[in-house]
Simulated assay, not measured.
Amino acid sequence: MIAAGALPKCVAVGIDNAGAGRGLDYLPNKPGAGPQGMRQDAANWPGGGSASYLAHVAEEILPAVQTRYGTTLDPSKTLFGGSSFGGISALQAATTYPALFGRVLCESPSLWVEEGRLLERACEYDGALPERMFLGMGGREYTDRYEDNEANRGVDAKMASWTTTLRDSFAAKGMGDDRLKYVLEAGAIHNEGAWARRFPVALDFLLGRGGAEARSAGVAAAVDGMLDLLAKGAQRQGHLAFLCPSTPTPGQRVRLYVNRANSPPLARKPNTSAKGGFDGWRLGGFEAAMAPAESLRGVGGDWWVVEVEVPRGVERLDCVFHDGGGGWENNCGADFHFECAYPVQS
């Protein structure tokens, strides 16, 4: 994104976590087991040192970085971010040091800590807030870790609702769409892969130079770096097709890839096209000729690609592939489906 001109040059400072003891740095109190005991595994985890940790970052690390690398202390160019317990740390930074960290990235914050009391305090907070904040959450962050059943899907919904409550509270305090971006990603789990997918969107909102052309080029440059990993991961898992970015945002143009080498109906055929629709084939539709993916020649297989636009307001992209002569690749009758990320509107 920097090379594409979508972001200014910046210095990224990564502070390693303390592993099992990370709650001591990131949380204002011990996490507890969560509402209705949803996290019994965390009942005895440490916490309570977040004020000291943030003071260390603000009073020692930031000045040291500025001295060594000549970085600015302009809050509009200073970002603090974290995920999970680190997302709670980012939330604490937003309310404790808003004049220092003018940009805050809060991913999948563990708002279940303290049986929900931390969320209550955040909603009751009436002080200053950062100029911009990105808030991200996945729709399957609990059932990915625990059994996927009706009760646990209810916990997924509660976790999403808690994040929405935080968004609503900050919006009521004056953080409109120009200052607060909330992305609730359907089907996303609680891991680094999900946070990486949302990262280009978050950076663009928090630090981007603006302008559709710069944003498009910046996001494209960011996802190009993930392309080989996505293709190799698809091959390793036996997947015939993937998207880049893997979870698109409605309104975004994405690249759809298929590995013809692993598809008998398409292998060695002169032509391949993609036929698609949205939301269970109920909305819209497209059909487009594909071309060899030159950038993946070194990965192995026979990857072909086409660029398509995901309309605003949809939640899923559906597609199949054909050779134009009666040969169809439809995933053994199941078709191919890709969930979308979607911003939750105010």
Score class of each variant (00 low, 15 high):
residue 308 V to C: 07
residue 155 V to Q: 12
residue 144 D to K: 04
residue 113 V to I: 15
residue 147 E to P: 06
residue 212 A to V: 04
residue 128 A to N: 04
residue 263 S to Q: 05
residue 317 L to F: 09
residue 248 P to K: 01
residue 299 V to I: 10
residue 26 Y to L: 10
residue 160 A to I: 11
residue 169 S to E: 06
residue 99 A to I: 00
residue 44 N to M: 04
residue 65 V to L: 11
residue 238 G to Q: 04
residue 342 Y to C: 08
residue 133 M to L: 15
residue 184 L to T: 03
residue 80 F to I: 14
residue 343 P to R: 04
residue 284 G to Y: 02
residue 209 R to L: 07
residue 33 A to V: 02
residue 233 G to I: 01
residue 208 G to V: 05
residue 105 L to R: 03
residue 46 P to V: 09
residue 15 I to L: 10
residue 74 D to Q: 02
residue 300 G to D: 14
residue 105 L to D: 09
residue 310 V to Q: 13
residue 102 G to M: 02
residue 195 W to V: 08
residue 94 A to M: 12
residue 312 R to G: 14
residue 233 G to L: 03
residue 299 V to P: 06
residue 62 L to Q: 11
residue 189 I to L: 12
residue 337 H to Y: 10
residue 94 A to P: 05
residue 271 N to F: 12
residue 81 G to A: 15
residue 298 G to A: 11
residue 23 G to Q: 08
residue 49 G to S: 12
residue 187 G to A: 13
residue 306 V to E: 05
residue 333 G to Y: 02
residue 251 G to R: 02
residue 335 D to S: 10
residue 96 T to W: 01
residue 84 S to G: 15
residue 107 E to A: 11
residue 72 T to G: 06
residue 342 Y to P: 04
residue 336 F to I: 12
residue 118 L to W: 04
residue 223 V to K: 03
residue 334 A to P: 07
residue 93 A to S: 10
residue 184 L to E: 10
residue 109 P to L: 01
residue 1 M to D: 00
residue 86 G to W: 12
residue 71 T to V: 11
residue 22 R to P: 13
residue 336 F to P: 12
residue 72 T to Q: 03
residue 155 V to T: 10
residue 127 G to N: 03
residue 29 N to Y: 00
residue 58 A to T: 14
residue 282 R to P: 00
residue 90 A to P: 08
residue 9 K to A: 07
residue 110 S to D: 08
residue 157 A to D: 11
residue 123 C to L: 12
residue 115 E to I: 12
residue 262 N to Y: 04
residue 318 D to T: 14
residue 325 G to V: 01
residue 235 Q to M: 08
residue 319 C to E: 10
residue 200 P to D: 03
residue 181 K to T: 13
residue 2 I to V: 13
residue 71 T to F: 00
residue 66 Q to C: 12
residue 70 G to A: 04
residue 235 Q to H: 02
residue 330 N to T: 11
residue 322 H to V: 11
residue 158 K to T: 13
residue 290 M to G: 02
residue 252 Q to S: 07
residue 47 G to T: 13
residue 40 Q to D: 13
residue 119 L to H: 08
residue 272 T to V: 15
residue 96 T to M: 06
residue 8 P to F: 00
residue 182 Y to R: 13
residue 67 T to F: 09
residue 129 L to S: 09
residue 80 F to V: 15
residue 288 A to K: 12
residue 218 G to F: 09
